[in-house]
């Protein structure tokens, strides 16, 4: 009885996990494997499927349009993730106080996150366009000519990054605030008695206390920003001349404009691999230090 019961209960435990497991297999694992399978085929949406092995992948690595999209995506991640992580942290620290004004500003900074990408790009088109946009007007006020923010190949990615930072700031800020409110007030009092100034308190008390949340924010934002699509599609359609075409837009164009879904699936697998590697790298590099906690 005693020897048999643990094994028996293990099977009944499975019943509780079962429903989720089925959904997981049907909606996540199966499409993932089907996508890998598809990427090894020459296929279009109207039937006709031929096994071509890694031909799609080798074609991608020679495709200058795809390689440009990969470079654009990396550049975009570098332009958005560090500012998001740092600015959201600064806002969270500034707004982590029990005043009414802080509560209002928390709401204000979070409000942009609830907007859909169409609204966000509409708003930012008004900011970015050289013909009477907000930035153009500001430049005009200091006697500068307007910048072609959405049509110059070197300015278009920073402009989309700016839009994205504004849009995505709310979530990391809230994550940081939740973490900051978990830090016991006694730690700050002990630090005050230990003569720690504001900088020492930030670097030796606050940041180490919310380390895990910082790692979480960076990973979440990397995963999100690698998948840039809506802003680029709606603001520039990837232009000028592909200068703002990210990988997901490339996949969209290949898969749903040219119906070459085997090729699109291969590009998707590469994006999946890039995100996976980036995430694991961050996890591993930060875990070493975390293990010594």
């Amino acid at each position: 009885m005693t020897a048999a019961s643990p094994r028996k209960s293990r099977w009944t435990n499975g019943l509780f996990v079962g429903p989720y497991l089925l959904v997981y297999l049907a909606l996540l694992l199966y499409p993932l494997l089907a996508g890998v399978w598809l990427s090894l085929h020459k296929a279009d949406l109207f039937g006709g499927e031929a096994f071509v092995g890694i031909e799609n992948f080798s074609r991608l690595l020679r495709d200058t349009v795809f390689l440009q999209a990969v470079r654009n995506t990396f550049l975009f991640v570098l332009l958005t993730v560090p500012p998001l992580a740092v600015i959201a942290l600064g806002l969270a620290i500034a707004l982590n106080r029990p005043t009414r004004a802080a509560a209002v500003f928390r709401g204000v900074f979070f409000s942009s996150s609830v907007l859909s990408v169409t609204i966000v790009t509409l708003i930012w088109r008004l900011v970015l366009i050289p013909d009477g946009g907000l930035i153009a007007n500001l430049l005009h006020a200091v006697g500068q000519p307007p910048l072609p923010l959405l049509s110059h190949p070197n300015l278009v990615l920073p402009a989309i990054a700016l839009t994205t930072v504004w849009w995505c700031l709310g979530l990391p800020m809230m994550l940081y605030l939740a973490a900051l409110q978990q830090v016991p007030a006694e730690l700050y009092e002990a630090a005050a008695l230990d003569r720690a100034g504001p900088w020492k308190t930030l670097t030796r008390i606050t940041l180490p206390s919310i380390r895990r949340t910082i790692v979480l924010v960076v990973i979440i934002q990397c995963v999100l920003q690698f998948q840039l699509f809506g802003q680029a599609q709606l603001l520039t359609q990837g232009g000028p001349n592909g200068a703002s075409r990210p990988i997901v837009l490339f996949i969209y164009e290949v898969g749903f404009r040219r119906w070459d879904i085997g090729y699109a699936a291969a590009a998707s697998e590469i994006l999946f691999g890039l995100i996976l590697v980036a995430t694991i790298l961050q996890y591993v590099t930060t875990r070493d230090k975390a293990a010594s906690r």
């Binding site: 016991p184 006694e186 009092e189 630090a191 005050a192 008695l193 720690a196 030796r204 180490p208 380390r211």
Partner: peptide
């Protein structure tokens, strides 16, 4: 607080969780 020449032992200890015991005392 730091300039008053006082030291305090807190009810919940308030040790810095990410520092070693040596660093806690040396901080």
């Amino acid at each position: 607080p730091g300039d008053r020449g006082v030291a305090m032992v807190f009810q919940h200890y308030a040790l810095y969780p990410h520092m070693t015991i040596f660093e806690n005392m040396a901080f």
